[in-house]
Simulated scan of single mutants.
Amino acid sequence: MRNDNKKSVLVGVFVLIGIAIMVAGILTLGGQQKRFVKSISLKAVFDDVAGLQTGNNVWFSGVKIGTVKKINFYGDSQVEIEMNVEDKSKEYIRKDSKATISSDGLIGNKIIVIYGGTTQAPVVDNGDRLISEMPLDTDKMMETLQENNNNLVSITNDLKILTGKIAEGEGIIGAVLTDSTLAINFRNILLNLESTSVKSNRMLADMTTFSANLNKEGTLFNDLATDKELYSKLQSAVTDLQGTAENAQKMTDNLNTVTNKLNSSDNALGTLLNDAEFNNTLKSTFVNLDSSSMNLNRGLEALEYTWPFRRGFKRMNKAEGN
């Protein structure tokens, strides 16, 4: 009888221990799944959930705030995720926050990550749908990496061929690297460039000195650049020169007009200069005048010896002699 009671006590103790372990496990799992905390429901729609399962965690700013409650098909080919999120964390999640699918570690389970949001937007309410952001597709990344790898192999082969040709002295670069004559010429070119650079620096220094001397007080250039009175005088002189040039232009125009009139036969001077017939007539007139004057002189000389005028000429000669 005593042994039976002892066995019953031991069985009862083990049963109590088992119940305690089961309750602790339920509480632990419930705490991890946020079953016993006040929560709200948030939703997000994705084109591809990438292996996300019910019960996976929901994170916000590196803190676990909930779990995935349901995964349902939405529309034609999309998937709607329903999440249980702690009620106390909703004040940090805004209506313009975004949800994306990520991994818990490098090869861990898929999780939902809520991020972003501005303080200008109100906090989320129960049943709100967040903006979804598709994660990076690892398959596409691997395809891109594979393509880049193939391109790298091709570039490496091309470089191998190119360096081989250069080592053999083919092409311009190979000739420059292997031909000693070209190397000497190239060295001479560099020396000439260096000499030219030195001369250019000297010329720049001389120009700097020259410009500094121009800016010294008392020089003509400095006076022209800084003396306002001299500038006004120069301006006045230029204005006078401009007036003189205009007067000279007018004089030239007048001379051109006179010249044109002289070249025309509709005036006296033009007729004298350009009319050949008139010139011949004028010459004949002068010839006749010359002849008439000669005849007149002869007549006067003859009058001196005629009887009526002989006495008068004698008196005139006597008066001139005195």
Rank of each mutant, 00 (worst) to 15 (best):
A205K: 11
V63D: 13
M142C: 08
S232Y: 04
R202P: 06
A99T: 00
L136V: 12
K6Q: 06
V113N: 07
T285D: 07
K38I: 06
L182W: 01
G62E: 00
R310T: 09
G218N: 00
L190T: 08
K216F: 12
A121T: 07
L52H: 08
S197F: 00
Y231K: 15
N288Q: 09
L177E: 14
D290F: 01
M83V: 13
N192L: 10
L159W: 03
D104K: 06
R311Q: 10
A183H: 07
G105L: 00
N57R: 07
Q120P: 04
N185W: 12
M83I: 04
I93S: 08
E91V: 03
D128I: 00
F60T: 01
Q33K: 04
T244C: 05
K34Q: 10
T67S: 02
E80Y: 14
T244I: 14
K95E: 01
N288R: 09
V153W: 10
L106R: 11
N188S: 02
D158I: 07
V176M: 15
A248S: 06
G51S: 01
L191V: 09
I131L: 12
F60C: 05
M251L: 06
Q235W: 13
D253A: 08
M207Y: 03
N157E: 12
I189L: 07
L27M: 13
V45K: 06
N57Y: 12
N149E: 14
L27V: 06
F286W: 01
L190S: 03
K90D: 11
E143D: 02
D4I: 02
S200T: 14
E168R: 09
S154V: 10
L269S: 07
D104M: 09
Y92T: 06
K64Q: 07
T144A: 07
N297L: 05
V58Q: 01
D96I: 00
S102E: 11
N274F: 02
N247R: 12
I40P: 06
K233A: 08
K69F: 05
K140W: 02
L145T: 05
D96T: 02
E82H: 06
K165H: 15
M294R: 13
S293W: 15
L145F: 13
T54I: 11
A99W: 00
E277A: 11
F46S: 15
N213R: 06
A121I: 12
M203S: 05
G30T: 00
K7T: 10
K233F: 09
D290S: 02
I65Y: 06
K318E: 07
N148C: 04
N213D: 11
N274A: 14
Y115S: 10
D253V: 10
I81L: 15
A167L: 04
Y115H: 08
N151T: 11
E277D: 14
F313C: 10
T239F: 07
V23K: 15
L177G: 09
L230A: 01
I189Y: 00
I112S: 00
T54H: 03
F36E: 07
K95L: 13
D47E: 15
N279Q: 10
D76N: 15
L273H: 09
L42N: 04
T209E: 14
L162S: 15
L224Q: 01
I131H: 04
L273M: 12
V58S: 09
A167R: 04
Q33G: 11
M1P: 09
I26L: 11
F313Y: 14
L230G: 01
E91W: 13
